[in-house]
Amino acid sequence: MFTDSPLAQTFRRLLAAGAVALVLTLTILAASPEAHEHVHHDCHHDEEHTCAVVLFAHGIWTTFDVLTAPAPASAWAQFLPLSHPELRLTAPPHRLPPQCGPPAC
Protein backbone atom coordinates (compact mmCIF):
# COMPACT_ATOMS: atom_id res chain seq x y z
CA MET A 1 0.00 0.00 0.00
CA PHE A 2 1.02 3.57 -0.52
CA THR A 3 1.61 5.61 2.58
CA ASP A 4 1.20 9.36 2.59
CA SER A 5 3.12 11.73 4.73
CA PRO A 6 1.18 13.53 7.47
CA LEU A 7 1.61 16.78 5.54
CA ALA A 8 -0.01 15.27 2.42
CA GLN A 9 -2.90 13.89 4.48
CA THR A 10 -3.42 17.26 6.15
CA PHE A 11 -3.36 19.04 2.79
CA ARG A 12 -5.85 16.57 1.31
CA ARG A 13 -8.20 16.99 4.27
CA LEU A 14 -7.98 20.79 4.13
CA LEU A 15 -8.67 20.71 0.39
CA ALA A 16 -11.69 18.44 0.92
CA ALA A 17 -12.99 20.67 3.73
CA GLY A 18 -12.57 23.73 1.51
CA ALA A 19 -14.48 22.05 -1.33
CA VAL A 20 -17.30 21.09 1.05
CA ALA A 21 -17.43 24.64 2.41
CA LEU A 22 -17.55 26.06 -1.13
CA VAL A 23 -20.42 23.80 -2.18
CA LEU A 24 -22.32 24.52 1.03
CA THR A 25 -21.83 28.27 0.60
CA LEU A 26 -22.95 28.18 -3.03
CA THR A 27 -26.01 26.12 -2.08
CA ILE A 28 -27.02 28.57 0.64
CA LEU A 29 -26.47 31.58 -1.61
CA ALA A 30 -28.39 29.94 -4.47
CA ALA A 31 -31.33 29.13 -2.20
CA SER A 32 -31.55 32.55 -0.55
CA PRO A 33 -31.77 35.65 -2.77
CA GLU A 34 -31.27 37.89 0.28
CA ALA A 35 -28.00 36.15 1.15
CA HIS A 36 -26.91 36.38 -2.49
CA GLU A 37 -27.65 40.09 -2.55
CA HIS A 38 -25.82 40.53 0.77
CA VAL A 39 -22.65 39.06 -0.78
CA HIS A 40 -22.61 41.44 -3.74
CA HIS A 41 -25.04 44.29 -4.13
CA ASP A 42 -24.86 44.60 -7.92
CA CYS A 43 -27.01 41.53 -8.53
CA HIS A 44 -30.46 42.60 -9.67
CA HIS A 45 -31.80 39.10 -10.32
CA ASP A 46 -32.07 39.72 -14.03
CA GLU A 47 -31.28 37.42 -16.91
CA GLU A 48 -27.90 39.04 -17.66
CA HIS A 49 -26.53 38.48 -14.17
CA THR A 50 -24.10 35.55 -14.23
CA CYS A 51 -21.93 34.72 -11.27
CA ALA A 52 -20.84 31.49 -9.62
CA VAL A 53 -23.99 31.39 -7.49
CA VAL A 54 -26.35 31.70 -10.46
CA LEU A 55 -24.37 29.19 -12.51
CA PHE A 56 -24.36 26.77 -9.57
CA ALA A 57 -28.10 27.21 -9.06
CA HIS A 58 -28.82 26.49 -12.73
CA GLY A 59 -26.32 23.67 -12.98
CA ILE A 60 -24.33 25.37 -15.74
CA TRP A 61 -20.56 25.33 -15.87
CA THR A 62 -19.55 27.38 -18.87
CA THR A 63 -15.76 27.33 -18.60
CA PHE A 64 -15.42 23.72 -19.71
CA ASP A 65 -17.87 23.76 -22.61
CA VAL A 66 -15.12 24.09 -25.20
CA LEU A 67 -13.05 21.23 -23.79
CA THR A 68 -14.17 18.02 -25.40
CA ALA A 69 -12.13 14.88 -25.42
CA PRO A 70 -11.70 13.28 -28.83
CA ALA A 71 -13.01 9.78 -29.25
CA PRO A 72 -10.30 7.18 -28.76
CA ALA A 73 -9.11 5.43 -31.87
CA SER A 74 -10.52 1.94 -31.95
CA ALA A 75 -8.30 -0.96 -32.85
CA TRP A 76 -9.50 -4.44 -33.62
CA ALA A 77 -8.33 -7.12 -31.22
CA GLN A 78 -9.43 -10.70 -31.27
CA PHE A 79 -10.56 -12.04 -27.92
CA LEU A 80 -9.22 -15.46 -27.10
CA PRO A 81 -10.55 -16.79 -23.81
CA LEU A 82 -7.98 -18.58 -21.72
CA SER A 83 -8.86 -22.03 -20.53
CA HIS A 84 -9.34 -22.21 -16.81
CA PRO A 85 -10.04 -25.18 -14.57
CA GLU A 86 -13.62 -25.79 -13.60
CA LEU A 87 -14.30 -25.27 -9.92
CA ARG A 88 -16.40 -27.89 -8.21
CA LEU A 89 -17.46 -26.62 -4.85
CA THR A 90 -18.98 -28.77 -2.15
CA ALA A 91 -22.14 -27.73 -0.37
CA PRO A 92 -21.59 -25.66 2.76
CA PRO A 93 -22.07 -27.58 6.01
CA HIS A 94 -25.12 -25.55 7.06
CA ARG A 95 -27.02 -26.75 3.97
CA LEU A 96 -26.41 -30.45 4.51
CA PRO A 97 -29.11 -32.57 6.14
CA PRO A 98 -28.44 -33.43 9.80
CA GLN A 99 -26.29 -36.52 10.36
CA CYS A 100 -28.49 -37.80 13.15
CA GLY A 101 -31.68 -36.81 14.93
CA PRO A 102 -32.20 -35.67 18.49
CA PRO A 103 -31.92 -38.31 21.21
CA ALA A 104 -35.07 -40.26 21.98
CA CYS A 105 -36.64 -39.67 25.39
Results as ranks from 00 to 15, higher is better:
1 M>D: 09
2 F>V: 14
3 T>L: 12
7 L>M: 10
8 A>D: 04
9 Q>H: 06
12 R>I: 05
14 L>Q: 14
16 A>R: 12
17 A>T: 13
19 A>H: 12
21 A>E: 14
24 L>D: 09
24 L>V: 12
24 L>G: 06
26 L>I: 01
27 T>M: 04
27 T>Q: 03
29 L>Y: 02
32 S>T: 05
33 P>H: 02
35 A>D: 00
38 H>D: 03
38 H>R: 08
39 V>T: 03
40 H>I: 06
41 H>R: 15
42 D>L: 08
43 C>N: 11
44 H>K: 09
45 H>T: 01
49 H>A: 05
50 T>F: 08
57 A>K: 10
58 H>T: 08
61 W>T: 00
62 T>W: 06
66 V>I: 09
67 L>M: 08
67 L>V: 15
68 T>R: 15
69 A>V: 12
72 P>A: 07
77 A>Y: 05
80 L>A: 07
80 L>E: 11
81 P>T: 04
81 P>A: 03
81 P>V: 02
83 S>Q: 13
85 P>F: 05
86 E>Q: 15
87 L>F: 09
94 H>R: 11
95 R>W: 05
96 L>V: 00
96 L>P: 01
98 P>D: 01
99 Q>K: 11
101 G>D: 09
102 P>T: 07
103 P>C: 02
104 A>I: 07
104 A>V: 11
105 C>S: 13
105 C>I: 06
